[in-house]
Amino acid sequence: MTIGCSAVLHAGLPFPYAEYERRQQKVFEAMERENLDALLVTAHGHLQYLSGYDARGAYFMPFPLILVPGQKPTFVVREYELGSVRPGSCIQEIVTYREQFDFAPVCADAIRGLRIKGRRIGLELGCWGLAPADVNALQAQLPDMKFADATRLVGTVAAVKTGLELELMRFAMEMTDLAVQTFQSSLRVGIREAEVAANIDREVERAGGVVQATSSTLLFGERTKLSHGSPKQHPIGNNQPAFLEIGGVKNGYAFGLVRSAVLGRHAETELLHDLSVEVLEAVVDAIKPGATAGEVDSAGREVLERHGCTKLLNHRVGYQTGIRWVERGNLSLEPGARDILEPNMTLHMPIILCGESGYLFGTSEHVLVTERGAEILSRTPHTLYRA
């Protein structure tokens, strides 16, 4: 089967072309199971997974990667971004358009040029990167084609990691652990959130890594009542809580982790943390090949039911990880989810509980699904750190 990548390492890509060929072939196999004749990949993380391109330019307009079994993948991108897409991806067939109104006719022409045998085209309708107006415009250009929702297809393939991916992810976790250790060692009365963040950046950079600042949360005191929050010039006082969610990143692969601390004593958040540990450990124990995502979620909620405080958890217990911190439409550990866990999946379980006073506090683990269960990848304990 011709795919459109050569089996060499491109200077601008983190993996050999053969790795992208393998991923595309897995997607073709999934397309066959779903009876799809073509697939338009538009989710930014999925574009990076299949082509290497980080999709930064795709925030402004759709950049569909068109996949048709037996044919070379075709990228449809904005002309302005061509200089970044060509060296940043393994895709050789690239079609360009200039303005938003050009997207649908140019993309439709590219699809017709591929001479698709059938008429069933998959779209990632439940992901970011494709607006309803884009879908309507494509339907108007391709009235004879039948569009199907293929939101979960690429994410399901990407959920199972290769050794090459896990090597990057383990390094990213080393950087996450270093960030956590720096957070803990920095805590003292009067230090500001922004100072701790600067300490983290400095130490991780010294180790040759980076953290994903856009997804990081670092909060002290009353500000731990915020669901997300970037560090400010806000100091921590005695007998106050501190909360960190941060992830080291390598070639787009992010490994998030939640860790909490108390400077002195703080009864309410300490109780929340104790309970979050119990929930987390039940969730981790439930992770094994063959378990459903919903069963894992239920294991955590059963702990809260026994304590009579189910309302403390108002979100899912975890999600699939890999390229980008999260991607809408990927596997989610939530009530009723039927996805079946497989070896070499990686999952993050942030168990953050909401107290009566509004504090959001807890802990997490990032695990690799193995034949025997869950391998915890962090080396920093998920217990409460006391400074």
Rank of each mutant, 00 (worst) to 15 (best):
R86Q: 13
V296M: 04
G126L: 07
Y17G: 14
I121N: 01
L36Y: 02
P350F: 03
L166E: 09
H348C: 07
P335R: 15
E327T: 10
I111F: 04
R170A: 12
A104E: 02
A198S: 11
L263A: 02
V249F: 01
Y359F: 15
E193I: 04
H228R: 15
E21F: 06
Y20Q: 04
G252P: 04
E21H: 07
E342K: 11
P16W: 03
I246M: 06
F15C: 07
F361M: 03
A172N: 02
E99V: 10
A11W: 09
I323C: 04
K225N: 11
G336Y: 11
W325I: 06
A242D: 04
N35H: 13
G264D: 10
I111N: 00
H366E: 08
L341T: 01
T217S: 15
K26S: 13
L178Y: 02
A213G: 09
R386W: 12
G163L: 10
F28T: 04
T162D: 10
E305K: 15
K311R: 13
Q212E: 14
V77T: 03
A159S: 15
K225V: 08
K26L: 14
Q240M: 12
Y53N: 01
V8Q: 09
E342G: 08
D109T: 14
C107K: 00
L114F: 08
E32N: 12
L331H: 04
Y17N: 14
G190E: 07
V284Y: 00
G113H: 08
F255D: 00
A159M: 08
N330T: 14
G83R: 11
L218Y: 02
R23A: 08
E32W: 08
V180A: 06
I340Q: 05
A261G: 07
I111T: 02
Q92K: 15
L153G: 00
P143K: 03
H266A: 05
S51V: 04
P87H: 06
L263Q: 00
V204F: 05
P87W: 05
S364C: 12
L347V: 08
L331E: 02
T42C: 14
F75P: 00
N239Q: 09
Y253C: 08
